[in-house]
Design a protein around this nucleic acid. Structure first.
Lengths: 320, 320
DNA sequence: GATCGTTATGTCAGCGTTACCACGAATGGC
DNA sequence: GCCATTCGTGGTAACGCTGACATAACGATC
């Protein structure tokens, strides 16, 4: 009836009627039921966003940016944590599809076969973020880890470093870290900086600890190392603490570079140099893509798959 | 029809029929539509969880525990970040109510008048968590900040400390911090440890920085301070860094105690003593309460409001 | 004042489920 | 072999909303 129209700003209702309706709504405490609306209009006003871990602040920033942008179009985000496990991802997608989301955002990289089938069958825009799969399902928005590694190495070379190691201290749930490691190895070759020195931080519980252990192993294997890339600012901080324990001056004797531009690195003494990513910008980009895809579809046409890599830039601070 | 029953494990369908149905579902790629289900059954299978900040790992742990527990009953969580702002909270609740959640979890403490009205009118179980409001809307599950402060002070006294300060380095979005501060002041009196020394970390951007600044101010005002409580492990780490800058030995000259048991504190050198909270346990408790309330309601009766404070215990580590 | 165009409001059906009831078949007790 | 009971299945009517269309109201135009 007219109430439905009165609640939609664009629909033609006389100002008088609209006011009457709104007054009645207010008096009765009426709250529209979106289930019914979704059923009728076939628009759930829901977008599913799966992220590998809610404990990773950059994921959360991205998700928030998506959510905030979509909120302006009256679309809500159903946020789901896959914990980086493919079986869980599959289950989550299965569940979430029952709510008929209008788009699905999920980490790129590996998926189970069934996941891919489910997603394709869902017939809604799919956006993979983060690590670029060999063959994206539809749209992809991520970070150019290789160029990021290159930028870091150029920065370190400019600082006179030439024996540069790499500490892989992440649970590489998205495959991005291995891209970063490859970028590191490639850039070393390109810049003629010798053979790669890659060690893993092992299975320690926290990234801080993995960073510290990783640095220890790296220095044991290559005592002359004069700079280190970490895969996360938290492990970079762990590395910083380890360096301090070994009484190695930072950055005089050893340069450290984190990744991600987290709070924790900025406030260390010395502050951690890092490779900065713009998580919020990425989220905004994702939301924009969703909205465009939705509009395109509404007009009956199809949006060509997007394949986009966002920049990573070096934020020089005290540890380099 | 029979399909609906076949999908519900408890309903009486012959094994043969059920198998036939499931096969057909598989072949057709059928995915049930929960909007329709919700409309018909008046059960949305959705619980709204509002938290003040997704960037606070303990909030996230709690939310995850809620989500995991409810998932066993086929209920999903709609996670919303209020950013600690009451106007945003109100708007979020308004939006989320349109989805007819079966229960609403939100931070305790202050709410706008309209928020309280909306929640009451929603006629679903309401659970406030964290900071205890003077008058909870319905159920409340939180942490006994006062007892926590008491436990920390007893710990410090046992270590021979007697000039104990307090650095409030949080954006006190939930009111819990002021409870903690009060508990500190009260326990000081009870234990006869002199007058409170409370300073704020000010408006700095990150908790690390606020912790460092707060400690600096505290020491300027009371140079003989020999132990400090922080309102967060991150600010505790900031304090640790500041102490190091001032060349004050920790814990010989100065004891530091954080709050919350975050990763970052555990991996410092020395590791940060902290007041540990069991966020996951709290989430499980919340979920249990929701399920009980739902079952009680289904049986036609009403669950008496729960008012529960969970323990906080000291985790002694290197800084005390 | 009849005609047209425009805008505002009303009518109706249907979205995909599930609650409820009705029915037929199988089972069991006597 | 009859009735009572249980079990499994099918039919039907909502649930609360919106899209499409029909109609009403209102000016403007001739």
């Amino acid at each position: 009836m007219t109430v439905s129209r009165a609640l939609k700003p664009e629909s033609p209702v006389s100002p008088v009627t609209r006011r009457r309706v709104l007054e009645a709504i207010d008096k009765l405490g009426y709250v529209p039921d979106m289930s019914a609306g979704a059923l009728s209009s076939r628009r759930s006003r829901l977008v599913a966003v799966l992220i590998p871990s809610l404990l990773h602040p950059k994921n959360v920033e991205t998700a928030q940016a998506i959510s905030d942008t979509l909120a302006t179009r009256d679309i809500q985000v159903l946020l789901v944590d896959t914990q980086g496990r493919l079986d869980r991802e599959e289950r989550m997608i299965e569940t979430v599809l029952r709510r008929r989301p209008e788009a699905i955002v999920l980490p790129g990289g590996m998926h189970s076969d069934r996941t891919a089938i489910l997603l394709r069958r869902a017939q809604v825009p799919i956006i993979e973020i983060g690590a670029r799969p060999q063959k994206p399902i539809e749209h992809f928005i991520g970070l150019s880890m290789r160029l990021g590694a290159r930028a870091v190495l150029e920065h370190l070379r400019a600082k006179g470093r030439s024996r540069i190691g790499f500490v892989d201290a992440g649970a590489d749930i998205t495959g991005q870290i291995s891209d970063y490691a490859e970028g590191y190895a490639q850039a070393l070759r390109d810049l003629d900086l010798g053979a790669p020195r890659i060690v893993s931080g092992g299975r320690a519980e926290s990234p801080y600890e993995r960073g510290g252990r990783g640095l220890a192993r790296l220095l044991d294997a290559h005592p002359d190392t004069d700079a280190v890339l970490f895969t996360c600012d938290r492990s970079g901080v762990g590395g910083l603490i380890e360096a301090r324990r070994r009484r190695m001056d930072v950055p005089e004797r050893l340069s450290l570079v984190g990744f991600g531009n987290f709070d924790v690195g900025r406030d260390m003494v010395p502050a951690l140099t890092t490779a900065g990513i713009n998580a919020a910008g990425m989220g905004a980009e994702v939301a924009k893509t969703i909205l465009t895809a939705l509009e395109t579809r509404e007009r009956g046409s199809v949006m060509p798959p997007l394949d986009r890599l966002l920049d990573i830039h070096v934020i020089p601070r005290g540890t380099s």
